[in-house]
Simulated scan of single mutants.
Amino acid sequence: MVEESRPAFAAERRERILELVRAHGTMSLRDLAVKVGASEVTVRRDVRALEAEGLVDRRRGGVALPGRIGHEQSYAGRSGRCAAEKSAIAAAALRLVKPGDAITVGPGTTTEAFARELASRSDITVVTNSLRVADALLGASGIEVVVTGGTLHAPVRALVGAAAEQSLAGLRVNRAFLSGNGVSAERGLSTPNPAVAAVDRALADCAEETVVLADHTKIGADTMVSTVAPESIAHLVTDTSADPEVLMTLEETGALVHVAVVEQERGQ
């Protein structure tokens, strides 16, 4: 008898899925399948059952706690998650920066990792509203850092508001490097906070191209406020655990997808 036809096993597996989602907030079906030792088809069926009970919300390629679409985690709560993936994404994104470039960099733990990689470069101008990005570049002698004005938004350690948006008006840069809480082919890049979204849009509007940095937990996820339309994403840099079906749909909107390999996976 196969596992999914045995109610006792199904109940245990669904309880484990619920525990994982509660612990992480959002998870992809692929990650859940690995964690519980079942197929994605089985996990998808379990998730439908949990959603019917009001315990989780389904989304393309993954699952979240109910009401997660409008929730904004603290910076500290996000910083330790997928650290290896974010480091690999940051290193891959660095290849899109050339000497003499001017770029904008938005807030987030992934863009902070990117800034640490960027610190090794020279002859670069970085415009940012992120205090953590600016701090990561503090000792980089070859990089000119321009920080916007604005009001501090503590959850993302970034400056937001009219002053931040106005300080970006009229600027022109080569690329914008942005992160967020979700990226999908339907809504593009999104974030839970309208003030953060408004400055993200201003950072993108400055640039000839927009590069989105997103680990696999963000791929296929939607949050409350859309910041960059899917057709405006020129490059998406993610990791090998991202849902391939969602990546295909993003490629169909015109994004060039770069898949970064985590250091531990090299040579396997």
Score class of each variant (00 low, 15 high):
residue 3 E to G: 15
residue 11 A to K: 09
residue 11 A to D: 12
residue 12 E to V: 10
residue 14 R to T: 02
residue 21 V to F: 05
residue 34 V to S: 10
residue 38 A to M: 08
residue 43 V to E: 10
residue 45 R to T: 07
residue 50 L to V: 02
residue 54 G to P: 00
residue 54 G to N: 06
residue 55 L to H: 01
residue 60 R to Q: 00
residue 63 V to S: 12
residue 63 V to R: 04
residue 63 V to A: 02
residue 63 V to T: 09
residue 73 Q to S: 14
residue 75 Y to M: 04
residue 79 S to Q: 13
residue 81 R to K: 14
residue 82 C to E: 08
residue 86 K to I: 13
residue 89 I to V: 11
residue 93 A to K: 07
residue 99 P to A: 01
residue 102 A to F: 14
residue 108 G to K: 05
residue 108 G to C: 00
residue 114 F to V: 14
residue 115 A to I: 01
residue 116 R to K: 12
residue 119 A to P: 12
residue 124 I to D: 08
residue 128 T to V: 02
residue 131 L to T: 05
residue 132 R to T: 12
residue 133 V to E: 02
residue 137 L to I: 07
residue 155 P to N: 04
residue 157 R to E: 15
residue 157 R to H: 14
residue 158 A to P: 01
residue 166 Q to T: 10
residue 167 S to T: 00
residue 170 G to P: 00
residue 175 R to C: 04
residue 188 G to V: 15
residue 190 S to G: 08
residue 191 T to V: 13
residue 192 P to W: 01
residue 192 P to M: 05
residue 193 N to L: 08
residue 196 V to M: 06
residue 197 A to M: 04
residue 198 A to P: 01
residue 202 A to H: 15
residue 211 V to L: 13
residue 211 V to G: 11
residue 213 L to D: 03
residue 217 T to E: 14
residue 224 M to F: 12
residue 227 T to F: 13
residue 227 T to W: 14
residue 233 I to C: 11
residue 234 A to Y: 03
residue 235 H to F: 15
residue 236 L to W: 11
residue 239 D to A: 11
residue 240 T to E: 13
residue 240 T to Y: 06
residue 242 A to H: 08
residue 243 D to H: 08
residue 245 E to Q: 14
residue 249 T to Y: 11
residue 250 L to M: 05
residue 262 V to Q: 12
